[in-house]
Simulated assay, not measured.
Amino acid sequence: MPRRSRSPPGNDLPLSHALILKAALLTIGYIEENGPIGLTPTKALKRYFVAWAAEAFEWPGYMVEDLYAVNKVLNEHDFPPLVILHEVLLSAKLARHFKGTLRLTDLARKLQLEPARLWMLLTTHLLFVVDHSP
């Protein structure tokens, strides 16, 4: 069970530096605009989305040019921030797997409009729920 933490006061947090929040919001927006994201038979996100995410997330240490310098195509495991985000979205019940796709839940749609609450949920699950042993 995740620990309960107090919600931050208002939306005055400097959330522009919260990379996991930015990635989650971009992913939620992508699904809202383009529909569910396809999954491989092993339930990894399909390459078209991994390529999009690598460019859109602009994650420090994982620049698109560097990723493609090592890989001809990008799979989910080639972009570790996406692996973590995928796990956190599922753990926090913001997304679910259904018929070979990753789909948003109503909670994700609601919290998309409340970034401070979304950030609290993401970080709580990232810190206290996700298994960090691997």
Rank of each mutant, 00 (worst) to 15 (best):
P9E: 11
Y68D: 07
A54I: 04
L94N: 00
S16P: 01
G35M: 09
W59S: 06
N11A: 15
D66M: 14
P36W: 01
D106E: 13
K22R: 15
I28V: 15
A116P: 01
E55K: 15
L89S: 00
I31L: 04
R117V: 03
Y68C: 08
F79N: 01
V50E: 01
I31G: 00
L107G: 00
P14S: 15
D131E: 12
A23M: 09
W52V: 05
D66Y: 13
N71R: 14
L118H: 00
A51R: 10
L113R: 11
S7Y: 15
I28F: 13
T123V: 11
L122W: 01
W119T: 00
L13G: 03
L39D: 00
H17W: 12
F49K: 02
P80D: 08
E65L: 14
A95K: 01
W52C: 03
L102E: 00
F49P: 01
L15R: 08
A69F: 08
L121D: 00
P81N: 12
P36S: 11
E58A: 14
L107Q: 03
T105K: 03
P115D: 05
L107S: 02
G100A: 05
T105Q: 03
F49Y: 15
N11E: 15
S133T: 12
I84R: 06
M1C: 09
R4F: 10
P14Q: 15
L127Q: 06
F49Q: 03
K72I: 08
D131F: 04
E58D: 15
H132M: 03
G61Y: 11
L82F: 12
K46W: 08
E65F: 11
L15S: 05
G100F: 07
R3K: 14
V130D: 03
